[in-house]
Design a binder for these strands. Structure first.
Lengths: 261, 261
DNA sequence: GTGAGATCTG
DNA sequence: CAGATCTCAC
């Protein structure tokens, strides 16, 4: 069994109390972090090591930052899109292979507003990612693409779809772009197991009692190529840590895959 | 018995975890706080009330602030020097009477540097305090003057006297001034019980492992008029809380007085 | 080093 | 609301 989780931690250093407790309780094989918000020299690698996890990571001061943690060796780690285009978002994408499964962890740009150049950059990010899939992987591979995608794919993935039509994480253009790239060869494993409404992974700090009122977004995803998706066993949001002291605004999304047979 | 403590908390709101625990363990009759660093509307009065303590307090945003907490009624509370001189440091001195004992709690200005005007203000603070003693009290009163005095009176009250001759808390001028005002009628109760070296109440955060290495200053004091000093039973620094999680840089100083006979 | 403040960001 | 940064104070 390969248990993998994706978790936007909103500062890895401010979230060690959550991460220690959660990894102690869950022992996922792989944990993909986004928004670590710290330069590599300050990344708490030894704390993860003490928990049994090796880590590859790249971050910057205050913004972005991704990490790939694993109980098993991480083979062939890479950062960024490596397509020769500038800028290469090296602190938004980390890849590696664990137990023969290729893993891509992305922190997709949020986009600010639909008339902002960052939104075009976000669209372009997905295009470039598709190029990377074409270049580096095959649709027949055991491939997992996980992370904070900053896209809620359908109406049931947000609390109030009506007032979010112009939102950078819910606009028709970005949803279409996301569907296109998923069509490369990915299955939304979460929806295999939780097809209903009210399933969210992000609860804005600014919304009062968002967790209790279940006002959120499903923008953190675990996507798998069909070979792997067919061997999936479960996928769920663990809302627990969102309710702990000093939480991230995101909750971990966990997936389980039977890779042993 | 009257147990009294003085404790520079370096933000009362950031120190509630320490204060709750410590008051639960110690149940002093009176606790004098300095550097509460909060406006009165945000002072955690109800939390102290829940612990059985009534409080009089005056603070300001980010700086200064004093509080007088007591298990017994606080009679005739006053703030500031009330001498008509401006400015009146109302958030640096609180007075009141508990079980017939007059208590003065001061947070004496630090002074910044010996060539800074704040240092002159510090000297003047002691002069004005002496005027207050003359005006409001008699040397025959049961009177306690406690607080963060920002003066280490003698060579054994600091770790390295040699390199502190020009320090605002150790310069000859301020030590002389402090001795003069003590001469109004106060006895340093702490030294009755702990005459030796290496007794400190303040351990700078910036000195690595200051507590374990015992590198500090004795600048928090419990002074009593002779009638009361003769009935004192003990006086000590409780270094415990300085070693707890998220501590103040000061430790409480505790004194016990047999006022029942 | 650890409080506080203000300002910016999502 | 809660990260980040910076400045200030002790």
């Amino acid at each position: 069994m390969l248990k993998i989780a994706t978790f936007n931690v909103n500062s890895v250093r401010s979230r060690m109390h959550i991460l220690s407790q959660w990894l102690h309780d869950n022992r996922v094989d792989v944990l993909c972090l986004q928004e670590t918000k710290t330069e590599d020299q300050f990344f708490p690698a030894s704390e993860f090591e003490a928990l049994g996890y090796e880590a590859v990571f790249k971050g910057e001061k205050a913004y972005n930052g991704v990490a790939l943690l694993s109980l098993h060796p991480i083979m062939n780690p890479h950062f960024g899109l490596e397509d020769g285009e500038e800028p290469d978002p090296a602190t938004r994408i980390v890849r590696g292979t664990v137990l023969g499964v290729h893993i891509i962890n992305t922190y997709v740009p949020q986009g600010k507003s639909i008339d902002h150049s960052d939104y075009q950059y976000k669209m372009r990010f997905f295009d470039r990612l598709k190029t990377l899939f074409d270049r580096e992987y095959s649709k027949a591979d055991d491939l997992l693409w996980v992370g904070d995608m900053n896209v809620a794919p359908t109406d049931i993935d947000v609390t109030n779809p009506g007032n979010k039509r112009d939102h950078v994480c819910f606009h028709e253009d970005i949803k279409k772009k996301f569907e296109e790239i998923k069509a490369w060869g990915f299955i939304d494993v979460f929806r295999k197991y939780r097809p209903g409404e009210g399933e969210f992974s992000f609860f804005d700090y600014r919304v009062k009692n968002a967790l209790e009122r279940n006002i959120g977004w499903r923008i953190d995803h675990i996507l798998a190529t069909s070979s792997l998706a067919h061997r999936s066993e479960d996928c769920y949001v663990d809302r627990g840590p969102r309710g702990w002291e000093k939480p991230s605004d995101h909750a971990p999304v966990v997936g389980a895959f039977n890779i042993d047979e």
